[in-house]
Design a protein around this nucleic acid. Structure first.
Length: 418
RNA sequence: GUGGGUAUAGCUCAGUUGGUUAGAGCGCCAGAUUGUGGCUCUGGAGGUCAUCGGUUCGACUCCGAUUAUCCACCCCA
């Protein structure tokens, strides 16, 4: 118990952290080039923010939130996603006063009380991007392109981009009535879960895996065919931008996102080789959200990209992730006097920006060499009484085995040149 | 919340129809004439066989419960 991390959480151990750092580095580079700046918000927020933001009928809000009361009697929730906090901060800090659109990104941990499985954890990490203030389809295209560029820069291949439009509240309401009218006739033939969906979220019935439901869904009206004029224009324009940006996409009229705030553009990027939870990235437009959270009517769009799922994809595709820089030099010592000298030499090297390491265990010279080899250091220097007395030592290149003489007084300069 | 699989060394796994000192490979530590790693060889440390209970003369092995973990449904990143 004491030595077991809570269900659905995972450590990133020192041997693995370089993978995360590489992904984070790549993310920051791409965001810089797109003009998105990082925002950092608290891990927890007032519960109400998420209830209002995601919609209190959604699964996430109803059964997956880590909610507790703090000592002051406030209801607090560990963030299950990033968008609500970003909007809150946008309003609280009057970011709308700056030239629009406001473009920001974040790399955060999120918390949802779910049963863990492949690609699903209770604590997971998300790279998110948000753009507030523009309703132009060009920003939709930019956001999608940012995600695709990141994946491309990481060397990920064969991901599928699916896009859809779920319209604005007006055309969706009209469509919902149409759809429910159609489904009403077949209500008794739907599966149990779809019967529940009928009231809650009839759109999702069209995405059901049951044969019966699929059959019924085939002839159902499709939202994409029932968009109002301005929503249709918006979607057509987005497709046009994507085509001009050479971004391949499929239109999937059955993408239904589980959060209430989405309007118009929704999209998903799917990986086939990471198990049942294939959505690496999901997002869309949320033109009503900022108003819902107390701001003036402001359009917005963004996405969330799961870092764990991204890592699974990279590993699944056998993509090599660059390791961090190896230690430059290991100073092996023989005897107590040399050990003390080694300690200060290592310090001197580090002060000059040269990574250096020494022994901190009871180890023979041979064992120290072995240790240096396992650390993957580039060079090893042996330090004993002789070297201290003569001021000269031998430096071994661990890759080639070549040994050269060096002067202890010029250790820093010599190693800098190597 | 529901369903299925799994649980033996730090890791990956063996363990014969229940039979007494539970094994291998990798990893770790040490040594192979005492000041130079990788390859090889030798030796060593390390396990309440997830936990609790039951059956039995006897359980790592059979049965039950609990817990953990993996996978899937739902939903999502």
């Amino acid at each position: 118990m004491l030595t077991k991390a809570p269900k659905g959480t995972k450590d990133v151990v020192p041997e693995e952290s370089y993978k995360w750092q590489y992904i984070e580095r790549t993310i920051r580079k791409v965001c810089d080039s797109y003009g998105y700046k990082e925002i950092r918000t608290p891990v927890f927020e007032h519960t109400e923010l998420f209830e209002r933001g995601m919609g209190d009928t959604t699964d996430v809000v109803q059964k997956e939130m880590y909610t507790f009361e703090d000592k002051g009697g406030r209801s607090i929730t560990l963030r299950p996603e990033g968008t609500a906090s970003a909007v809150r901060s946008y309003l609280e800090n009057s970011l709308y006063a700056a030239p629009q659109p406001t473009k920001m990104y974040y790399i955060i941990s999120c918390y949802r009380y779910e049963n863990p499985q492949k690609g699903r954890l209770r604590e997971f990490h998300q790279f998110g991007v948000e753009a507030f203030g523009s309703e132009k389809p060009s920003i939709d295209a930019e956001i999608i392109s940012l995600a695709m560029t990141l994946l491309n820069n990481l060397g990920v291949k064969g991901l599928e981009l699916n896009i859809n439009s779920i319209g604005c509240p007006e055309c969706r309401k009209e469509y919902n009535e149409k759809l429910m009218k159609y489904l009403e006739k077949h209500l008794d033939k739907l599966c149990i879960t779809c019967k529940e969906r009928y009231q809650k979220n009839p759109l999702r019935i069209l995405d059901c895996k049951h044969e019966q439901c699929k059959e019924i869904g085939k002839n159902a009206p499709i939202l994409l065919d029932n968009l109002c004029n301005s929503c249709k224009e918006h979607f057509d324009s987005l497709k046009n931008y994507l085509a001009h940006m050479n971004i391949d996409y499929n239109i999937d009229p059955f993408i239904v996102r589980g959060l209430d705030y989405y309007t118009r553009t929704v999209f998903e990027i799917i990986s086939k080789d990471i198990g049942a939870q294939g959505t690496v990235c999901g997002g869309g437009r949320y033109d009503g959200l900022i108003e819902e959270l107390g701001g003036s009517p402001t359009p917005g769009i963004g996405f969330g990209l799961g870092i764990e799922r991204l890592l699974l994809t990279l590993e699944g595709q056998g993509i090599e992730i660059p390791q961090c820089e190896p230690i430059k030099v290991f100073i092996a010592n023989i005897g107590e006097k040399a050990e003390i000298k080694a300690q200060s030499l290592v310090l001197a090297l580090r002060k000059h920006g040269i990574s250096a390491e020494k022994n901190h265990m009871d180890r023979s010279l041979k064992a120290q060499m072995k240790y240096a080899d396992k650390l993957g250091v580039l060079y090893t220097m042996v330090l004993g009484e002789d070297e201290i007395n003569t001021g000269k030592a031998k430096l071994k290149n661990m890759k080639t085995g070549e040994i050269v003489d060096i002067e202890l007084d010029h250790l820093v300069e010599t190693l800098k040149e190597l």
